[in-house]
Design a protein around this nucleic acid. Structure first.
Length: 886
RNA sequence: AGGCGCGUAGCUCAGUGGGAGAGCGCUUCCCUGACACGGAAGAGGCCGUGGGUUCAAUUCCCUCCGCGCCUACCA
C-alpha cells in the first residue's frame, strides 16, 4: 500500500478548492493559445457589472459554460474563455451618487472631472470583487486576457464604431420624445423600460367649446376628455376625435378653451383615436406622450413642455403649478378642476406604466436632443443570420422571441445624460453650431474655425457591450487573437438580455466583422427559490452562492445547478438538493479512498482473459455512460449528463461494482484491481467538468496522474467494451441478490444472520451463469451456502422467492421472527403480476394491435407475457406450499 | 391585445406514442473493515379538465381551468 497516495478521512472542500484555484492559475492551464494548430473553442464571458457581487444567476450562467469549456479542453481543443467586467454606467452612478448624497453632495456639485476620479477609484477598489468570486466558482477563465469595457483598447473600439456608423449615416441626432428617468437624470432606450400594471384612475375632464353661447340658457357646451395623467393637460395643444365620430362632427374646425391655462386649442381629427375608449375625445399633449407626439408632428401642433427632466413642472405649466413635483401637480390639477366643476367623473383604471429598469421610478416621456442608431439596416442581416440557422438559439423557441423584437425594432437611443461611460465623440461649434464627429478631439470647427464643445453625454452601456465578442480580442486591429478566436462558439446568457445584448452583438458583429459573433446562444433560465419566486433582496429569499460554497462546497453547488439546468427553463433552487449533492461528493471521495486503499505497490494490469463478470459488466456500463454523457453535453442537456453520472457513480459503481470487487480483491485478483483503478480514473475525468475541485484532488492521488485532470484526456467511449452478455448475466445475479435480500428483510432475518439459499435450476445456460457467480450472491446477500436443487432439504419452514427464471428457497428455523407476513407478501406480489398480465393479454388479444403495431413492440409484449406467466406459476406454487391460510 | 412557457410521488423536477422516473422527505431494519454526508428493504402517483387523432395517448392536436413570463403608443 502506498501511504502517500491515501486520502484524508473526510473531504473538506475549502482548503482543497483554494489550492487548486491557485494551481490552475499558476500553471496557466486556461490560457488560450493564439498560435495553436489544435481546433479552437472560444467564448467570451458575459461581463458582470463592476458593481456586482456574485449571485445565483451569475453562478448558473458561469457554471454551465465552464462545464462545456472544461469538457472541450479535455477533448484537446485550444480553449479560450475570456473574462472581463462591464462599466455599467447607470449602476455605478447610483452607487456613487448615493455615497455623495451621504456627504450632502451631488454630482453637479463635485463636477464631472472629480466625479470620474471618484468612479475610477471606486472601480479600482471594488471592481475586483466579482472576479475573485468567479475564481472561487472554478470558472476556467483566461485571466491573462481580462478586459474592461472602458479600458483604452476597448474605448478605441467604441469610438471607432461610433464614428463609422455616423459617417455611414447610421447614427444621427434628433429632437425627439424619449423615455427619461427623473431620478437617474438620464434618458433610457425603449427596452430599458419595465412595464408594470398599476391601479390608476381615469379622470374625465370638461373643456369648454369656444364660441358656444355662454350667455344662453343652455349654458356652455363642453367636450369631455378622459386621461390618466391630468397634470399633462397644462401642456395640451389640441383635442382629437375620430373623423367619422358623429358625436363630434359639429366640432370639426372649432377650438376649445384649455382650463387652468386659458389657452385656445384646436379640435383635430385623427383615425388613431379609439371611439370606444373613454368619451371618444382625447386631449393631445405632444411634449409628454408618444402618441400625441406623433399627432402633433402630423398636425403641426405646438410642443409645450410642462414637465422638466427631473419630473418638476416648468414655468410653462403656469405660475400656480411651476416647480411642483409631477405627482403633486396631478393632485392639485384634479382639485382645481373639481372646484371649477370641470371634473365630470373619476374611474378606477388599471394600466401598464413604464418604470426605470434600474431604479424603478416612473418614466417620464421627455422631449430633447438625443443620439440614435438607425437600426433597420443593422437588424436585417441579424435576422437573416438566425433565419439561416447560422446562429442557433438553444432551446429553439427563443428564436421566435428574437424575431418578434427584431421585426418591430425601433431606432435605438444611445445617448445618456451621465458621466461614467464612453463620452460621445461629437463636438459642436460654439459659433456656427456645426457638428463634428471624430476619433480624436478636433482643434477647431472645420467650417468656421470656431471653438468646439464636446457633447456632454455618454453612450448607453449596451452600446459598448455589443462589441464585446470582438472588441475584447483586439479589434479594430487585426490581431492574432481575433483571427484565431473570432467568431466564438457559444454565448450563454439569460433570456432577459436577448434584446439588450445578444441582438446587439449579432448586429454589430455582422456589421464590423462581417461574421456572426457566436454560433450557439444558450439561454438559461432564472434561478428562483424553492417556491419559484424570483430571488430578491426585498423578499429576503436570496440564496447566496458564496454562502452555499462555504456550506456545501463549490462542487456541490455546481453539480446542483447543472442537475437543475433544463435548457430554457427557470430552476427552483433548494438547499436540500445541494445537501444531497454534497453527500454525492462525499460518496465519490470515499469510493476513491476505498480504491486507493486497495491499490498495490506496483500498478496492476488488466489481463483480458482474467476479467471477471463484474469487471466486464462495469466496463460495459462505463462505455455506455461515457457515450451518453458526450451525447447529453453535445445538446447542452446538463441535467441529463449530471443525472447519468450521479446514477452511474452511486448506484452502479459504488453500490454494485465496489461490492463485487471486494470479492475479487480478497482473492488478490490484480485484474479486478486494475479495472477498479481504471474505472475510477475514468469516472473522475467524466465528472471533472462538473466537479472540478474534488476530481482534481482525487485525480492527483491516482496512479499515473498527469499534470492536471483539467487537461487530462476526456474518456473515450470504448464501444468495444459493450458486453450485452455480461449485462444480462449481471442482471440475473443482481435479481437473485435483490430477491434474497427482500425475502430476508420481510421475514425479519437479522442482517448478520447467514442463510442457506436453494435455487431451483432454470434453463441450463441461466443456471450455469448463476452458478458461476455464486460467490457474488453469497457475499452480497448474506448467504452461507448456495445450492441448486429442485427442492430444498426438509425444514420446518422454507421461505420462497422468485428471481427471474429462478425459484428461491431459504430454509429457516421456526424461531425466526415475523414469519407471518410471508403469505401476504406473496399474495400481494401475485396480485400485481395478475393485473399486469391482464393488461398485456388484453392488448395481445386485440387483432388491430397485432396487425398494426411495430413487430418489435408485439414481440416485446409476447416475451413479457411469457415471463409473467412463468412468474405467476412460481408465485402460485410458493403460495400453495405455505399451506391453507390460517 | 399578442407571443412564450408551465401544471407528473408530500416538496423540487426529469421523461416517454406501447411496462410511470430521480433527488430530497417519509416508514422499517442495520454503525458489515470506503462512506451514518452510509447500507438494505419499502410506502406513495385517475402524469390539471373535457374532447379529438390512433390498434394504442401521461406523451400528438384542440377547448377550458390554474399559474408564470415577455412584448405592446387605447389616452
Amino acid at each position: 500500500m502506498n501511504e502517500k497516495r491515501q486520502l484524508e478521512k473526510t473531504y473538506d472542500p475549502t482548503p482543497v478548492e483554494a489550492r487548486w484555484v491557485k494551481f490552475w492559475q499558476d500553471e496557466g492551464l486556461f490560457v488560450g493559445d493564439a498560435h495553436s494548430t489544435k481546433p479552437k473553442f472560444s467564448m467570451v464571458l458575459p461581463p458582470p457589472n463592476v458593481t456586482g457581487i456574485l449571485h445565483m444567476g451569475h453562478a448558473l450562467c458561469f457554471t454551465l459554460p465552464d462545464i462545456i469549456t472544461r469538457w472541450k479542453r479535455m477533448q484537446g481543443y485550444n480553449c479560450l474563455w475570456l473574462p472581463g467586467t462591464d462599466h455599467a454606467s447607470i449602476a455605478v452612478h447610483n452607487v456613487i451618487e448615493q455615497s455623495l448624497a451621504e456627504k450632502g453632495l451631488t454630482r453637479e456639485k463635485v463636477g464631472r472631472d472629480e466625479f470620474l476620479r471618484i468612479a475610477w477609484d471606486w472601480k479600482a477598489k471594488y471592481g475586483g470583487v466579482i472576479t475573485s468570486q468567479l475564481r472561487r466558482l472554478g470558472a476556467s477563465l483566461d485571466w491573462s486576457r481580462e478586459r474592461f469595457t472602458m479600458d483604452p483598447g476597448f474605448s478605441r473600439a467604441v469610438k471607432h464604431v461610433f464614428v463609422s456608423l455616423y459617417n455611414e449615416g447610421l447614427i444621427y441626432r434628433d429632437y425627439y420624445l424619449v423615455n427619461r428617468c427623473p431620478r437617474c437624470g438620464t434618458v433610457l432606450s425603449d427596452i430599458e423600460i419595465e412595464h408594470r400594471d398599476l391601479h390608476g384612475k381615469l379622470w374625465y375632464i370638461r373643456y369648454p367649446v369656444e364660441g358656444s353661447d355662454e350667455s344662453a340658457a343652455t349654458g356652455t357646451e363642453f367636450v369631455t376628455v378622459a386621461t390618466t395623467r391630468p397634470e399633462t393637460m397644462l401642456g395640451d395643444t389640441a383635442v382629437a376625435v375620430h373623423p367619422d365620430d358623429e358625436r363630434y362632427r359639429h366640432l370639426h374646425g372649432k377650438k376649445v378653451r384649455l382650463p387652468l391655462r386659458d389657452r385656445l386649442i384646436p379640435v383635430i381629427t385623427d383615425e388613431r383615436v379609439e371611439r370606444e375608449f373613454g368619451t371618444g375625445a382625447v386631449k393631445v399633449t405632444p411634449a409628454h406622450d408618444p402618441v400625441d407626439f406623433e399627432l402633433g408632428k402630423l398636425h403641426g401642433l405646438e410642443q409645450v413642455i410642462v414637465i422638466d427632466g427631473s419630473g418638476k413642472m416648468t414655468d410653462a405649466a403656469g405660475p400656480e403649478f411651476a416647480g411642483l413635483d409631477r405627482f403633486a401637480c396631478r393632485a392639485k390639477v384634479v382639485e382645481k378642476l373639481e372646484t371649477l366643476g370641470l371634473l365630470v367623473k373619476t374611474e378606477d383604471y388599471d394600466h401598464a406604466v413604464g418604470h426605470c429598469y434600474r431604479c424603478k421610478s416612473v418614466i417620464e416621456p421627455h422631449l430633447s436632443w438625443q443620439w440614435f442608431v438607425r437600426i433597420k439596416p443593422l437588424a436585417d442581416p441579424a435576422i437573416r443570420a438566425v433565419e439561416s440557422g447560422e446562429i442557433q438559439f438553444i432551446p429553439g423557441n427563443w428564436t421566435k422571441t428574437y424575431f418578434e423584437w427584431m421585426y418591430n425594432i425601433h431606432d435605438w437611443c444611445i445617448s445618456r445624460q451621465l458621466w461614467w461611460g464612453h463620452r460621445i465623440p461629437a463636438w459642436y461649434c460654439r459659433d456656427c453650431k456645426h457638428t463634428m464627429v471624430a476619433m480624436e478631439a478636433p482643434e477647431k470647427c472645420e467650417k468656421c474655425g470656431g471653438p468646439l464643445d464636446q457633447d456632454e453625454d455618454v453612450l448607453d452601456t449596451w452600446f459598448s457591450s455589443g462589441l464585446w465578442p470582438f472588441g475584447t480580442l483586439g479589434w479594430p486591429d487585426e490581431t492574432e487573437d481575433l483571427r484565431t478566436f473570432y467568431p466564438t462558439d457559444l454565448m450563454a446568457t439569460g433570456f432577459d438580455i436577448i434584446f439588450f445584448w445578444v441582438a446587439r452583438m449579432i448586429m454589430l458583429g455582422l456589421k464590423f466583422r462581417g461574421r456572426i459573433p457566436f454560433r450557439h446562444v444558450f439561454i438559461n433560465g432564472l434561478v428562483r427559490d424553492v417556491k419559484r419566486r424570483k430571488m430578491s433582496k426585498s423578499e429576503g429569499n436570496i440564496i447566496d452562492p458564496l454562502e452555499m460554497i462555504g456550506k456545501y462546497g463549490t462542487d456541490a453547488l455546481r453539480f446542483t445547478l447543472a442537475a437543475l439546468a433544463v435548457p430554457g427553463m427557470d430552476l427552483a433552487l433548494s438547499e436540500e438538493r445541494m445537501a444531497g449533492y454534497q453527500a454525492f461528493a462525499n460518496k465519490i471521495w470515499n469510493a476513491s479512498r476505498f480504491v486507493l486503499m486497495n491499490l498495490g505497490e506496483t500498478p496492476a494490469e488488466a489481463k483480458e482473459g482474467e476479467l471477471s463478470l463484474a469487471d466486464r459488466w462495469i466496463r460495459s456500463r462505463t462505455a455506455a455512460v461515457t457515450e451518453a454523457i458526450g451525447r447529453s453535453l453535445e445538446q447542452y442537456k446538463f441535467y441529463e449528463a449530471a443525472d447519468t453520472l450521479y446514477h452511474f457513480v452511486w448506484h452502479e459503481f459504488c453500490d454494485w461494482y465496489i461490492e463485487f470487487a471486494k470479492v475479487g480483491l480478497r482473492e488478490g485478483n490484480r485484474t479486478t484491481e486494475a479495472v477498479l483503478a481504471d474505472t475510477l480514473g475514468r469516472t473522475v475525468r467524466l465528472l471533472h467538468p462538473f466537479m472540478p475541485f474534488i476530481t482534481e484532488e482525487i485525480g492527483q492521488h491516482l496512479p499515473g496522474a498527469g499534470r492536471s485532470v483539467a487537461i487530462a484526456p476526456f474518456p473515450e467511449a470504448r464501444p468495444e467494451w459493450a458486453d450485452p452478455e455480461a449485462e444480462r448475466t449481471m442482471a440475473l445475479v443482481q435479481e437473485v441478490i435483490a430477491e434474497t435480500r427482500k425475502v430476508r428483510t420481510e421475514n425479519r432475518i437479522a442482517p448478520k444472520e447467514k442463510v442457506e439459499l436453494w435455487v431451483k435450476p432454470a434453463s441450463g445456460a441461466e443456471t450455469r451463469a448463476l452458478a458461476g457467480h455464486a460467490a457474488l450472491v453469497r457475499t452480497l446477500a448474506g448467504v452461507s451456502r448456495l445450492e441448486f436443487a429442485d427442492a430444498p432439504p426438509a425444514a420446518r419452514r422454507v421461505l420462497k422467492g422468485v428471481a427471474g427464471p429462478f425459484e428461491l428457497a431459504i430454509p429457516v428455523e421456526e424461531t425466526a421472527a415475523g414469519l407471518a407476513g410471508e403469505r401476504e407478501r406473496i399474495a400481494k406480489e401475485l396480485e400485481k403480476v395478475r393485473a399486469e398480465l391482464a393488461k398485456i393479454e388484453q392488448k395481445l388479444e386485440n387483432p388491430d394491435f397485432v396487425a398494426r403495431a411495430p413487430r418489435a413492440v408485439v414481440d416485446e409484449n409476447r416475451a413479457r407475457l411469457e415471463g409473467l406467466w412463468d412468474r405467476r406459476a412460481k408465485l402460485e406454487r410458493n403460495l400453495a406450499s405455505l399451506g391453507p391460510a390460517a
